[in-house]
Simulated scan of single mutants.
Amino acid sequence: MKGYGRLSDRSIAYELWNYKEGRRATTTECVSYMSNQVKQLSVTKRRKIRRSSGRA
């Protein structure tokens, strides 16, 4: 908490971690990861809709 300067209000500071490189993730890495996750979920959702409607 000292690194974030939040000792006075005792709030929680979350941080995302890059496990492959053993360090905190940068904002750019976080945004690219989240956008990739959204793309994957939308493709999966489209596939499920096609299957349920009878299209191959």
Rank of each mutant, 00 (worst) to 15 (best):
M1E: 12
K2Y: 03
K2Q: 13
G3C: 02
G3D: 14
Y4V: 05
G5Q: 11
G5C: 07
R6F: 01
S8W: 06
S8A: 15
S8V: 14
D9V: 00
R10W: 07
I12N: 05
I12K: 13
Y14T: 08
L16Y: 15
W17E: 05
E21A: 15
E21T: 04
G22W: 01
R23M: 04
R23Q: 00
A25M: 14
A25P: 03
T27E: 13
T28S: 12
T28Q: 11
E29G: 02
E29M: 00
C30Y: 13
S32E: 14
S32D: 08
S32W: 04
Y33D: 08
M34S: 09
S35C: 01
S35H: 06
S35Q: 11
S35F: 01
N36V: 00
N36R: 09
N36I: 03
K39A: 15
L41P: 04
L41K: 09
S42D: 12
S42C: 04
V43Q: 15
V43W: 03
T44R: 05
K45W: 06
K45F: 11
K45P: 04
K45Y: 08
R50K: 08
S52G: 05
S52M: 10
S53R: 13
G54D: 03
G54R: 07
R55S: 15
R55V: 07
